[in-house]
Design a protein around this nucleic acid. Sequence first.
DNA 1: AAGATATTGACAATCGTTTTCATTTAGGAC
DNA 2: GTCCTAAATGAAAACGATTGTCAATATCTT
Lengths: 133, 133
Amino acid sequence: MSDPVRRSTKQRAAIYEVVQVLPNFHSAQDIHAELAQRGSRVGLSTVYRALAAMAIEGDVDTLLRDDGETLYRQCDQEAHHHHLVCRQCGATIEVDGPTVETWTRRIAAQHDFDEVSHTLEIFGRCPNCRAKS
Amino acid sequence: MSDPVRRSTKQRAAIYEVVQVLPNFHSAQDIHAELAQRGSRVGLSTVYRALAAMAIEGDVDTLLRDDGETLYRQCDQEAHHHHLVCRQCGATIEVDGPTVETWTRRIAAQHDFDEVSHTLEIFGRCPNCRAKS
DNA sequence: AAGATATTGACAATCGTTTTCATTTAGGAC
DNA sequence: GTCCTAAATGAAAACGATTGTCAATATCTT
């Protein structure tokens, strides 16, 4: 009935550590590869399980890419927020959107929907990448 | 260099027809099944290819679900717009968001990004489904 | 230390989607 | 209509991210 007690393990610590250190968003597979690189031999399933758990706990930040792949990143802000992501280099800026929050709530209310959530990501090309092309 | 010429086939016509008839969003597999149901034996690959092409042409409307599955639907409006989707029954309302459009453009401009696009979907529970529970 | 159970990891399985490639077909040229 | 060329199809295999299985292992409690 109740959730199992969470135990702290070397693997989870290693995974968390890597996520904290890596800049921007990375896939579970990236993180698994980075662990291998550092000599931490952690199973791929474990990486997936740990990241999913951390995402639920709010310890990491997630982003669903256009092709359906899930990316993870350290969580800078606790609060709900969105991302401005560079298509080319993946640089990410966290953006806060009171305007959007209000707007989505209003739209939902207008149509009498409840238990509302939303997803919003902005994609573009950052000044750096523009300069290079 | 230039795009291949597009030819019109029975299969594409059948696929388009089904999309027009079906209410709300459906996966490529759903549409393939519906075609089979109607006696139209169209290959699954063809359905995927046709839907992807139609999406690019703007002939159908797409929605990326949380789990990464792509859903297709007839396109009511030509213009860019977003969706308010019921998590339970899948009912979809198209919403127009001048507020959001302006906001995303402003955010992008603030950070000096160009070639900007964005994804926004609102999920919730519709009045019908609320009544049933 | 010992017991109970959460966690791990190698591997198989899933599932949506894409690719391959031989065969068929559309559409223009004649 | 007939030919021709390239586009389109479809069956099956390949793919890639993710999840399930389950025996072995590690953690926390007592």
